[in-house]
Design a protein around this nucleic acid. Sequence first.
DNA 1: CTACTTACTTTGCGATGTAAAGTGTCTGAA
DNA 2: TTCAGACACTTTACATCGCAAAGTAAGTAG
Lengths: 121, 121
Amino acid sequence: MNGRYSYDGLDRILHEKARLGLLTCLASHPEGLLFNDLKELCNLTDGNLSRHLQVLQQNQIVEIFKSFEQKRPQTLCRISVEGRERFLAYIGELQKVLLDAETTSQRQNSSQALPPGWVPA
Amino acid sequence: MNGRYSYDGLDRILHEKARLGLLTCLASHPEGLLFNDLKELCNLTDGNLSRHLQVLQQNQIVEIFKSFEQKRPQTLCRISVEGRERFLAYIGELQKVLLDAETTSQRQNSSQALPPGWVPA
DNA sequence: CTACTTACTTTGCGATGTAAAGTGTCTGAA
DNA sequence: TTCAGACACTTTACATCGCAAAGTAAGTAG
């Protein structure tokens, strides 16, 4: 059996600070969001956002659309059906982590009271 | 103001699949755990575990102790007081993510019905 | 004395995330 | 009409990171 605390369901693609923010954001806005909206909502730089969207698109987690609005290029980003599924599965695993974390024993070890024979490394 | 979805509280050191497992595990076992217990609980290879513990120790998140039990070296690992604080703060931020994720709109976009003028990238 | 096990540590390297630089188009001023 | 600057991204370069594989050291069995 796999380790109780291995959390294999934590999809590497989604388990990334920036991308986790992006996906959470996109999941709450199923109609899609523009590049600049995403940039500000997730507090990312242009290059950063571009790169992460590329990764998400290549993994079929988001769909990217282009157009020209008022003579300027615009990028619209939308979470895909598959992306939503993967995101929900990921979130489910996160809930497991939180559940495990809540069972954290309250008693503190206070950096002392170690059986003899142990020396700090 | 920072982006609504930037999740700055997601401490990079803790926001790592393996280390998140390790910390969750260690937080639930404040008396500490042996190298091999951790290895199995978190389903990690020796090298992997060694490396992550080193990172966690250098960041004062865990304390490492050595001893010889039955003529074999033993490594005991325990979450530090500071480590527990950082872990709880991290978990708090995770809860925010889950809360945001739950507000996910149910209506699906079904990969269609896009305003005209948009073309797939 | 040799091979094997245990308990890790170190090394090497490919993959990843990010800042900085670059590209292309449009707009307004000189 | 030319040049600077804004806008909307994309590409590049690099340093960091995670991980598997190899290495170390000490004890044990044959």
